[in-house]
Design a protein around this nucleic acid. Sequence first.
DNA 1: AAATGTGAAGAGGTTCACAGCG
DNA 2: CGCTGTGAACCTCTTCACATTT
Lengths: 213, 213
Amino acid sequence: MIDPAIPRLYAYHRALREAKVSGKSTITSHGLAAMLGHSISSTQIRKDLSALGTLGRRGFGYAIDPLVEQLAFVLGLEQDWRVAIVGFGYLGHALATFITSRESRFKIASIFDVAPELIGTAWQGIVVADTSNMETIVQDAGCNIGVIAVPAPAAQATASRLASGGVRAILNFAPATLHLRAPVIVRNIDLAGEMSILTHWLTAADASREAEA
Amino acid sequence: MIDPAIPRLYAYHRALREAKVSGKSTITSHGLAAMLGHSISSTQIRKDLSALGTLGRRGFGYAIDPLVEQLAFVLGLEQDWRVAIVGFGYLGHALATFITSRESRFKIASIFDVAPELIGTAWQGIVVADTSNMETIVQDAGCNIGVIAVPAPAAQATASRLASGGVRAILNFAPATLHLRAPVIVRNIDLAGEMSILTHWLTAADASREAEA
DNA sequence: AAATGTGAAGAGGTTCACAGCG
DNA sequence: CGCTGTGAACCTCTTCACATTT
């Protein structure tokens, strides 16, 4: 499966579950495109879905149930994942809540922080640990995925230690470039960067309006 | 400037500021690529930077100061932006802190929530308002940018009201497709989606390892 | 008739190879 | 000689047009 298709597949998965909740049992590629605000064309949707196997019926559309199931399979959402969260400030806390509430297959398995007032407190039965034995705790808890919600200067060390503990995928919210030798999948979410994408386009929009005038 | 270059430009901006802090005043395209973990090639960097004007000196590299300045200009980081945050739970709180700490040009100008225990409390001098007069408050505060950190079912209404209040760019953390008629720039950040991108690749890695065996 | 599935054309961005300059 | 700047080749993904199936 091609790279940029994956985020689209997740979008389909989400929209289809919504469609199901609202009572539908089939949907067409056009209908799905409409649900997604036409940000993805119906042709694109058909191309993506046909790559997963023969799931549609010509002249009819797609049955939602098997489609959701197949998407969940391809996205790896049919197995359990154990997540370690490092940094349990507002961001870490928000992520813990968010992740577990949206996808039942994600379990927070360990939480770390350096703040003395947080260490030893519990969230949903998980006790916040200090970072001194991160590698072993992560390994013992069987964490596959790590979430980095620490300040930028601490991000690299955190990433290395998560990798040492056997984590093979990292979601990084710290504005820092992570250097890892091991085959770890890293996905960076740079909030300040996202903001500046907005400001760039706002500025560009202003500039072009002035150019017209 | 081409679309996918913008996130790269922000990455350069961040790395260059780091380089400056560590005492450098010039840098080569190769050096910058190394700082970014070679996730971007030096050729790509030169193409991107040359599109901004003649900023490098052949046989020498780039002077950091003018480059940072030019990048900030292109990214729209040289003007002030007023941000409205809707939803002041853990996520909203984290974003408020994060945004203001990273880029001094972003000012949180208004905050909204529906929780009675939050309404009326203050954060950094900004009083959390209920959502009843969102349009006028946002307009009076001169907000350009809105951040949606509410549950998915409330996202669409929030977006529409922000747009009515004059907001022209939205950073949306709710897993929902926003339908807006006005020329509003929307950037969606889907945390569950990001997680499933990781799980897809983890699953794919497992599958290919089994195929090899 | 209606909607999927798909080879071919097209668009957009990245990489290459090297010219140009300090 | 080192490093930037850039036209051309390349490649990947998207869109088009239409054959195909119910």
